[in-house]
Each structure stands twice: as structure tokens, then as C-alpha cells.
Design a protein around this nucleic acid. Sequence first.
DNA 1: CGTCAAGAGGTGTCTATACAAGTTACCGTT
DNA 2: AACGGTAACTTGTATAGACACCTCTTGACG
Lengths: 265, 265
Amino acid sequence: MRSSTPECHSRLVKTSEDLPLHQRLGAEFQRRIESGEWPEGRPVPSESQLCAEFGTSRGPVRQALAMLRHEGSLTGGRGKPPVARRTAPSQPFGTFLSFTQWARTIGREPGQTTIEVARRRASPEAAARLGLVEGAPVVELVRLRLLDDVPAMLERSTFVHEVGRVLFDFDPDTGSVYEELLRREVDLHRARHTIDAVAADTHDAELLRVAVGDPLLRVRRLTTSGRGVPLEDADDRYLPAMATFTIENTIEGRTVIGRYRTEED
Amino acid sequence: MRSSTPECHSRLVKTSEDLPLHQRLGAEFQRRIESGEWPEGRPVPSESQLCAEFGTSRGPVRQALAMLRHEGSLTGGRGKPPVARRTAPSQPFGTFLSFTQWARTIGREPGQTTIEVARRRASPEAAARLGLVEGAPVVELVRLRLLDDVPAMLERSTFVHEVGRVLFDFDPDTGSVYEELLRREVDLHRARHTIDAVAADTHDAELLRVAVGDPLLRVRRLTTSGRGVPLEDADDRYLPAMATFTIENTIEGRTVIGRYRTEED
DNA sequence: CGTCAAGAGGTGTCTATACAAGTTACCGTT
DNA sequence: AACGGTAACTTGTATAGACACCTCTTGACG
């Protein structure tokens, strides 16, 4: 037992009480912006006023403001007081990785029809991308993904065997493979999405109900663990009429990404 | 002239003129990581060592390290010294906006053939996106963009008149419109890229030398000023064999975007 | 009435110090 | 030899003060 920290973090209430000061300040400032207490487009209180209000020095206040500025919620500076700006948040990792979570965030009902789930030997291409020797066992999953019962995307995933084997205890028709993997504490940590366009082959065309040769938006995804070990290699083919990807970019370097339902315009 | 800091950082360190100290430090640290002077995976010098080396206090050093940490080039903390990690840098705003700059960063020679540059009245769609009244004057620019003299992308840009008029003093065959606009101090500040796939129409097919109906990777771009005023609405159609977009995403929220030459694999 | 200058107040930057909390290495004990 | 505790070092956090530079307002002057 330590002698110097007898009861500091022994209470139940350490939910937010125990966080560092600048984090508490940052959360409070963010709340004020989102709640409209600090109206959008209007200057927020000056640093010295905030210091006085919370009884701290400038350091934590500036650190909290810097965090919000980096997220794009605050602009301005150098003489003029910072200005609040409510922004479209970048879609979080889960929303971007999971078709199911994505569909729900845009207010659609996700669905899926499993075409195939099989344990087989890695093809040379998949083996190369997953960092396996050719012929190593992998699990392949092919599903047709639906938005409000309409075909939207054809998903071909190849999992390394250690990850994919949990799919045999799981019915991929019932929900999100991604959420199931997280429940099993699979360390999905980073994903690299490569976007291009391909023509539908006969298989794509039949399942997505388009003509052979029609353009599809393809997203190839390599998902890796925290230590960089590849876990999944996927090839998702979207109907362009159903989904688009957006990248928003400013000269200051802030980047916001999103996947959206295609708008009819 | 300061009396307390006579020659501490007057020597070689001020490589880039008059920037604030923490920015110079950050640039120097980044250089050391990229050059391998601080090997990947190995702990970097401690804060106190860096303070001693550059003759500064901990503040600027910590600010510089925080910047690199936010970009993902450094990990670690609290007790254990930070560790360098070489990462694919997020492509800066200019590289992402300018075909010319992008081509150079991937080591290709950019080229262009101007198909049309014309002042005309805004179509209803373009007017809506640019926030203009229908029929307002705009400048349309259509160019075929080349990589190493091979057609790669067909670019259709619509500029608001105030921005587009400078194009009449400028030969769009000679170089980057984007750089020219920056020279004229046009406030290009934010860009929103929407990515999908389309089939080549007869015009696309002829210029890009593909068959009608072949899949193209389309990027629609709305570029706005710092105050949110739309300046340019563009429709770029890439040959999928020539360019792809990537989005890299981690559970911690770090996002890296890039545009790359399609690899043959 | 317009214009320019001074001043007040704001943020950006830097220094110096102090303590808390985590990590590592070493050394003595068992 | 294995174990455990301590000491040294590291980063995280917070305070206080100082000055530079920018912005906006105000007021004096032409």
C-alpha cells in the first residue's frame, strides 16, 4: 500500500473528479459550446476571465483552449478573443469501420445476407497483404449489406485465422461482426482504407442487381492491431448511388472524414 | 535586445529565420525523426537533455513534442521517455488540392491540356453549390491532367467570377491554377471532397481514352474561403488505374489522408 | 468630420520553479 | 538466484511572472 496516496482515488466518484485540471476545463468549455452557452460566432470569455472564474493559472486554461482549437471548435487568437464554432465532428473509428454502426448513425436500418463463410488457405494476394505465408489458414466472409432492405454494398473480408475462427460461433446474419470482435476483445486498432472505382463483375452484378461493367465504388481495407499486426483484409464494393466518402481539409491541417448516404440532387 | 538570453539560441538553431522557438524546435525534431537521427522505436533524448542542448526552458520543448505526439510521430509518456515512430504524414492541404503539387510529391511530372476556359452564366446546380443566384457570371475551366504525359484525370472547375477572372491573365497550360490563385492572395482555406464512382460519358471517354461506361473515380470538390464563402466547385474524374485515395484511421482518432498513384499489384 | 496616434486589453511566447506520478535500474536481503 | 524495496530519472501538471505582438477603441488634432 502506498503511503502518499491514501484516499485520493479510493472514492466511487472518481468518474470525472480525478481528471487533470486542464481536461476538466476542456470538457466544461466543450459543453458550453455545444449547449450554446457560448454562442457560435461570438467571442468567448478571455483567458484572464476564465482564470478568475475557475481560480487557476493561465496554463491549464490555455491547454484546454488549445485542445478545442485543435479540434476546430475554436478559432481566432492573437489579439482578438477566440470565437466558438460548432463543427461537424469527424466520424469516429467505429462508425467508419462498421457498416452496422454507420447505417444507424445516418438513420437507416442495416441488414445483411451472408453469401459465404469459409475457412480456407490464403491466396497469394491476401497472404501478402496480411503478412502471412502463402497457404496459411484464413477465414473468408462474403456478405451482401443492405440499407433499409435495399442492396448497398458487397463485402468480401479475409480474416487471419486467429480472429476469423470466432465467426464460426457467431451468425453473421444477426448483426455486426465488428461489434462481436470487440466483445471478444480483438484489438482492432487501425484501419487503412484505399478508395478507387471498379467495374462490376458478374458476381457483383448479380448480387447488387446492376449490369456487368457498371461502376462501383471500391474500398479496400486493411485492419491492424495496436502493434501493427494485420487482422483483416477486406474489399467492399458500394453502389455509388448508396454511399459516398467525404474528406474535409483546411489549410490549418484539420481533417474531417465521413461516409454518407448518397444524396439525390 | 534581451539581457538574459544573449547567445543561447543565436547560432545554428535559427535555421528558419524568425519563427517562434517551439516551431523551430518542432521542425528540428521532425527532421531528426525523418532522417533517422532519432531511430524509429528507440527512445528520444529526455526533455531536460533537449533543454540543455538548445538552451531553453521546458515549455517550448514540451510544446514541440506535443505537436509531434499529436501527429503520431511520438508515443509514450509518463515516466518512460517518448519513442519515435515514423509515420506516413498526412498530405498537407496544398498537396491535396493541387494536382501539380501532388504529382511532384509522388515523383511524377504533371501536365495539362486546357480544353476550355470560358466565362458564362452559372447553371442551376453550380449556382446552388456556390451559393449564387442562377445565371450569375462564373468562369468554367476544363482541363485534361496528365501524369508523365499520360492522361490521368479530367478536371471541370467552376469558379465564382471574382476568383475566375484572374484566369484570363493566366495561361492554364503553363502550370498550377492553385498556386497562381495563392499568388494573387485568393483565400483558399477549406475544401470538401466527396468521392464516388461514375461511368465515363462520351466526353470523358474520348479525352481519357477509355470506353464509354468504364468506371471512373469522381471527386467533387467545394473550395471555400476562411469565412466560408464558396469559391470553386469542381468535378474531377480520375482513371482508377492512375490514382487512389486513402484514409487511415485509428481508434484514438488520429486520421491521415492521402492521394496516391495506383500501384500495380 | 475624418484621420491618425496612443492606450488598454487580449493572446502568443518564454522562463523558472515545484511537486505528483510513473518507470527503470540497482542493490541488499532472503 | 530470486525477490523486493528504494533511489534516480522521467514525464505530467500547475503556478507565477514577464514581455512581444496584435486588435480595437478612444480621443485629440487637423
